[in-house]
Each structure stands twice: as structure tokens, then as C-alpha cells.
């Protein structure tokens, strides 16, 4: 046990920079609002100590945020999940395995099924607590992925909430109180073939955007989408 003792473990619990980046993220893509769907968390790797030691992940605890309900957890490589409830509502899902691998070579995916009622064009943050351990050890290292994305801390897992849609053309209205920044179009509408507001169009496909630029009467959609804006989106 040369790599961590009580002091180090405490430092990790406080979320200091003792660990290298090991982001736990949502890998199932955008969620559709007002629908029940699978949400998958990808654990890219375990914990890396500052001396380069890699530890396997033995436990993932996911806190269920507001706007997400109807939780059902799938059995994973960690076995069956444990559900924590407050009344009838599920507040946490915990996946835990008993033994750590001798090194950190595993990629884990942990899935739950849930209904997402958050407003479209928003992002829901899941606080995730990752526990790592050396094989044969009982000392745990916990990383709290709870900070706002883009900051200096450990980012929470972000669930992009997109509008419900069907294949083909969809006529959508930006919800009340919502502004979609032009820079966020790839986040919320990046999987669309093309998005139109009036005669202005956006696509995440660079070739399509080239054609937008060469089609008479058509401009590139550059401004923010505002409340009550009507857009045509083809998926």
C-alpha cells in the first residue's frame, strides 16, 4: 500500500487534484424530452494517482436529478444495482462489485431506464461518485464528479435533453423561457440533417453547410434561437 494511505484517501474524498482526469460521462447521446429511454454512463477508466498508479473502478453511485423519474436500473458488469429511495422516488442508483481488477484496463457501461421530463434544449446534470480500489486492498479512493462542466473541477455527467421528434420533418417551437445559443446548436440539434428558421439553415454536416452558402435565398443560421421561434428540423 505504498500509494495511498488515510491522508491521500481523505484528499480524494475532498475532490482535490490528486487524480488525473477520469471523466464519467453519458454515452447514450441526447435524451428526448417527455419520453422513457435508456441512459448509459461510460466509465472510461478508473483512477490514476499522481505517481501514475492506475486503480480499477469498483463502485459507481449516480444521484438522480430533478426532471428524471421512473428509474429502472440494468444489471451490469458490476452485478445488480442497488436502488436508494426517498418515499416512492428513486434518488440514487449504485452499482458495486466486490473485487478490483489488478490494473485499470476495463471500460464499463452502466445503464438505467428513466423518463426525462426536463425541458428540451436544456442539460440535466447527474452527480456521479466513482470509487476506485487497488486489487486486494480495502482502501477506497472516491472521486466526486459533481461540478459544472467546463469549469476547473470534476464535471458532473451531462445529459443533453433534445426535443422529441420523428424521422423526417419536425415543426418545433422553442419553449418558453428557453434560448438556444448559436454555439449550442451542435449540442441540441447536431444529429439533425438540417435545421431551418425562415430562410436560414444550420447543419452539423460541413458539406451541407457549403450548399447552404451556395443556394440562392438561403443564409447560414447564425443567431440564437429565441422563445417561440418556429423551426423546421429534418432528422
Amino acid at each position: 500500500m505504498r500509494f495511498f494511505g488515510p491522508v491521500f484517501v481523505s484528499a480524494c474524498l475532498l475532490g482535490t487534484a490528486s487524480l488525473a482526469e477520469a471523466h464519467v460521462s453519458i454515452v447514450s447521446g441526447p435524451a428526448a424530452t417527455s419520453k422513457t429511454q435508456k441512459i448509459t454512463f461510460g466509465v472510461g477508466h478508473g483512477c490514476e494517482l499522481t505517481d501514475g498508479t492506475h486503480l480499477d473502478t469498483v463502485k459507481i453511485r449516480v444521484v438522480i436529478p430533478a426532471g428524471v423519474s421512473g428509474i429502472r436500473a440494468l444489471t451490469s458488469d458490476f452485478g445488480k444495482a442497488t436502488i436508494v429511495k426517498a418515499g416512492d422516488a428513486v434518488t440514487e442508483v449504485i452499482w458495486e462489485k466486490s473485487a478490483a481488477e489488478p490494473d485499470d484496463f476495463q471500460y464499463y457501461e452502466l445503464t438505467l431506464r428513466a423518463r426525462v421530463d426536463a425541458v428540451a434544449f436544456t442539460t440535466v446534470l447527474f452527480s456521479v461518485y466513482q470509487t476506485c480500489r487497488a486489487a486486494g486492498s480495502t482502501d477506497d479512493v472516491v472521486v466526486a464528479w459533481i461540478d459544472a462542466p467546463g469549469g476547473a473541477g470534476s464535471p458532473a455527467a451531462s445529459l443533453v435533453v433534445a426535443p422529441s421528434h420523428v424521422p423526417g420533418w419536425n415543426k418545433l417551437v422553442i419553449p418558453a423561457g428557453t434560448t438556444v445559443a448559436a454555439a449550442s446548436l451542435p449540442t441540441y440539434l447536431g444529429d439533425a440533417l438540417i435545421v431551418w428558421r425562415g430562410s436560414a439553415a444550420y447543419s452539423s454536416n460541413a458539406e451541407t453547410m457549403k450548399m447552404v452558402g451556395t443556394t440562392p435565398g438561403v443564409t447560414a443560421l447564425a443567431g440564437d434561437l429565441q422563445t417561440n421561434d418556429e423551426i423546421w428540423v429534418k432528422y
Binding site: W196, M211, T214, T215, P216, G217, V218, K234
Partner: peptide, 17 residues
């Protein structure tokens, strides 16, 4: 294959240039 301009299937319903 598109020939420089947006193909008609990417133009929204009722679009008038």
C-alpha cells in the same frame, strides 16, 4: 448527389427562396 446547391429534400415544407 448534390450539385452545389441544397437538394430539394433538405428544403423545408413550403419553402420559398
Amino acid at each position: 448527389a448534390p450539385a452545389g446547391q441544397l437538394p430539394c429534400e433538405l428544403l423545408p415544407p413550403g419553402f420559398q427562396p
